[in-house]
Simulated scan of single mutants.
Amino acid sequence: MEIEDLATLTALLDEGRSLHGVRVQGIDLDLCTDRLLARSDLHGLVVLGGATSPALAQHLVGAGAVVFPAVHDSPVDVYRSRLYTPEELYAGIARGYDQTPDALAYAWSQDATLVGDPYVAVLRSLHDDSMEDALDDLLADRRVVGVMGGHGVDRGTARYAEAARLGRALAAYGLVVATGGGPGAMEAANLGAACPDDAALDEALPRLADVPSFRPEVTPWARVALQVREGLGSPDPVTSVGIPTWFYGHEPPNPFAQAIAKFFSNALREDLLLARCTAGVVVLPGAAGTVQEVFQLTTRLYYAARGETVPLVLVGREHWTETLPVWPLLQALGRDREMADRLHLVDDIADVPDLLQGSSTTPLRG
Rank of each mutant, 00 (worst) to 15 (best):
L9D: 09
G16R: 11
G16P: 09
L19A: 09
H20L: 13
D30F: 02
D34K: 09
L36N: 04
L36I: 12
G44S: 09
G49L: 11
A51E: 03
S53F: 00
H59K: 02
H59V: 06
F68T: 13
P75R: 12
S81T: 14
P86L: 05
P86C: 06
L89C: 07
A103F: 09
W108G: 11
W108C: 12
G116R: 11
D117N: 11
D117H: 08
A121H: 08
A121Y: 05
R124G: 12
R124E: 06
D128A: 05
V153L: 07
A161T: 05
V176D: 07
A178V: 15
A178G: 09
G180I: 00
G181C: 02
G181W: 01
L191W: 00
A194E: 07
D202K: 14
P206K: 13
R207M: 10
D210A: 10
V211Y: 06
S213G: 10
W221G: 05
R223K: 07
R223Y: 03
V224G: 00
Q227M: 13
N254Y: 01
Q258E: 11
A267R: 13
R269I: 06
D271T: 12
A275L: 02
A279W: 02
G286M: 03
A287N: 09
V294C: 02
T298Q: 05
A304F: 07
G307K: 08
P311V: 01
V315Q: 07
R317L: 06
H319N: 04
E322V: 15
T323G: 00
W327A: 03
W327P: 12
G334P: 14
D341I: 13
R342I: 02
D348I: 09
A350T: 10
T361H: 09
